[in-house]
Write a protein that binds this DNA or RNA. Structure first.
Length: 266
DNA sequence: AATCTGAACAACCGCCACCGC
DNA sequence: GGCGGTGGCGGTTGTTCAGAT
């Protein structure tokens, strides 16, 4: 039996399909993707149309390689936000409770890549996600090659890759609780030597630093405004940085934008 | 020139929150 | 309050392409 789903087109988009989608979106807007998919005549799902628009056809998107500035920003923001803090196991009780509250009241996104993408105009979450995976895999392999049996005394963990590739994290001022110190404390911990790392292991290691306490002053020294990390003992509530404006949560501090200053975040 | 390899990119899938009925 | 439709997200896989051998 052939279902509707089976009849839907999948795979790479053709120029003709792109054109149809662009025309339809111009006529009806980039919402109601199910509707757009139907009226466009494309034999695609609404989801597929949305993805194509958001990741490829949307005007203002940058294509091509990341600039060094963008690379640094991604690494920096991922170090701060790149954690899947959805479970109780990932958080202190207080932080988990607060996050659940915000989740319920829709005042904070739990999402990682989209938040990072919002700081990189013209870049999509998908692009950043792909970049990160490629970048981290490459770094992991580089370190794996560098690791000789004799060097096992320096308990290398994957965070050291982050340290070396994220100079922005190293903030001036010599605060004893800046990012470097946080990372270093992890490095001191007796974690496994990089030997046949799986992506899961890499993720675990990458995520570990943000679980550590973060100094507020150190946060404020960052080149761009960042949400205080909800992790750790010194978790500070987000209202320090965010405010409600006409029902939308907005950042108070200036940020990269599309030209009109304050941009609503969620 | 042919083949291999890895990086970059594109797209799909499953999950889940939100919203309207 | 329950339910189904829809959209947004992260994770993952597939494809393409450029550089190395």
């Amino acid at each position: 039996m052939v279902t509707v789903q089976d009849e839907m087109r999948k795979g790479p988009w053709t120029e003709q399909e792109d054109l149809q989608l662009v025309c339809t979106v111009r006529l009806f807007g980039d919402h109601r993707w199910d509707f757009v998919a139907k009226v466009s005549g494309l034999n695609r799902t609404g989801k597929s149309c949305r993805l194509r628009w958001v990741n490829y056809l949307h005007p203002g998107l940058k294509h091509g390689r990341m600039s060094p500035q963008e690379e640094h920003l991604i690494i920096e923001l991922h170090a701060r936000w790149g954690n899947r803090f959805d479970t109780k196991e990932d958080l202190t009780k207080a932080a988990f409770f607060h996050l659940q509250q915000m989740k319920r009241t829709n005042t904070l996104s739990m999402y990682r890549w989209s938040r990072i993408a919002r700081r990189l105009p013209g870049r999509t979450d998908n692009e950043i996600k792909n970049y990160w995976r490629t970048h981290m895999r490459k770094k992991a392999q580089e370190r794996k090659i560098d690791m000789s049996p004799s060097s096992s005394s320096s308990s290398f963990t994957y965070q050291s890759c982050l340290l070396e590739t994220a100079p922005i994290i190293r903030m001036d001022g010599g605060s004893t609780h800046n990012g470097t110190t946080c990372f270093s404390s992890v490095l001191k911990s007796n974690q496994s030597v990089m030997d046949g790392y799986s992506m899961d292991q890499i993720w675990k290691e990458i995520e570990a630093p943000a679980m550590l306490p973060i100094d507020d002053k150190a946060c404020s020294n960052l080149p761009c405004p960042l949400l205080p990390s909800p992790m750790g003992d010194r978790y500070c509530p987000p209202e320090v940085v965010w405010k409600m404006d006409n029902g939308d949560l907005k950042m108070l501090a200036p940020q990269f934008g599309y030209g009109n200053g304050e941009r609503s975040c969620y």
